[in-house]
Design a protein around this nucleic acid. Sequence first.
DNA 1: CGGACAATTGACGTCTCTCAAAATCAGTGG
DNA 2: CCACTGATTTTGAGAGACGTCAATTGTCCG
Lengths: 250, 250
Amino acid sequence: MEQFKSGKLQRALVQEAVRPAAGTAGAEGGELLGRSSGKALILRRRDFLYRMGERLDAIYMVRSGVLKSCLIGIDGSERILGFHGPGDVLGLEALSGSVVRCDLIVLDTTSVIRIPLNVVRGRCRDSETAEECLLGQMNRQQIRLEALLQQERLNAPARVAFFLLTQARLHRDAGCSDRVFHLPMTRRELARYLNLANETVSRVFTRLRRQGVIHLEGRMVTLVKPEYLGEMTGPVADGLVPGSSSQTLH
Amino acid sequence: MEQFKSGKLQRALVQEAVRPAAGTAGAEGGELLGRSSGKALILRRRDFLYRMGERLDAIYMVRSGVLKSCLIGIDGSERILGFHGPGDVLGLEALSGSVVRCDLIVLDTTSVIRIPLNVVRGRCRDSETAEECLLGQMNRQQIRLEALLQQERLNAPARVAFFLLTQARLHRDAGCSDRVFHLPMTRRELARYLNLANETVSRVFTRLRRQGVIHLEGRMVTLVKPEYLGEMTGPVADGLVPGSSSQTLH
DNA sequence: CGGACAATTGACGTCTCTCAAAATCAGTGG
DNA sequence: CCACTGATTTTGAGAGACGTCAATTGTCCG
């Protein structure tokens, strides 16, 4: 299993594999984009898509790659609100004319489509479904925040387990393996997302590894016993556990 | 100060006092409502405005009173996402055709205006500002959730202090005293909102009382030294502290 | 190879939850 | 008007989980 060192090559392969999701999740966004709209942007790690306090005149749709959206407190403490991948629509705050409240930072080389506000507005006026798609996206964002809030009631191991299962689900939906995948964020970022100390995240990972529940090589994870992860989170993780009552992609 | 026992009469008076907020915050909602729209509903404590899983065909605007919106986990644990008062718009999920994800329960006799979906849609088509108002409301909801997420980084005393300052601000905006006001929720509900044990909330309150920072008579609070509350929360509570660099309503 | 950054591991303290028991409050019916 | 009952709130003792600090190891780039 030594070939799973998280080197550049490996990461590139995984990115490639995840890309098809743009087609899947993009089905919803399709109405928004029409066929030939907006120009594509390529961003690299540490680039900003936009910054807190800016007033956007466009929204963005992720085609490939990963970004994080994070709030920075006045005291410098950061809180990560979410990780965004193919199919996600970003910058919806622009629609209500308000400033964006968080930085959007690229984790891994990313391609986004920029759709100017007036184009979006026009498309919504033309098509009923485009508008609903947009509202659906806003709704989706809110659901994510609410899920984060519910996570806070779980203890550290449960949070990590739930996160892993959620990632697995994402990869499954993208048509990739839901047992072996790459985490695009550092431990620190993951900790900031789960609202834990990075040491705590690290400890949970090593305990899971010792128990033989997962396998870890840098940022490459293998879920050995996903059902144990499900037990850790309690009944919250319903349809998330890979291999339970459904065929598993090898 | 014995007259501040939180009896029925006192509560009624406070409600009356808060009501003007409907006029203030309603300025935004005004566009949504037009002049003669939607019928008013009167709800009493423990009533449901709507329940998790329902599919609404209307949105609601609060005229007076207080409600809580709470998620119930599969394990029965509840998490309160927010308290809603005059000027708040509820049930926006309906716009995207999705089911509501939380129960909305009345804390104190409440009057809401029901605005059917087709009316809302029509009004948005007619008026640009109505649409922006609606998007602004959705945005506002998201801001609240994000604020809740940031609260999780604070310790228990800071959370309570921040909550008190926020309440003070609300009452100030409503034209009431921001030093003496009534908390419409039980300790347990407050704890569920702050994601703390109710015992912890209780302990923080008594400590604050012993330190002479606040005065408590049941659910009636008096902020004796608001500036101390500001110090406890750190730089997060910026323009919130009553009496600091602005005239105080007695 | 060296410096910076990321991740791991250990020891320790403390904040907050849990459990349990009083005390206070609110609504009910005599 | 008052006693009774259940809910809410307060208070205490104890334990456990998580954060902080610090040292070590590993990884990425120039």
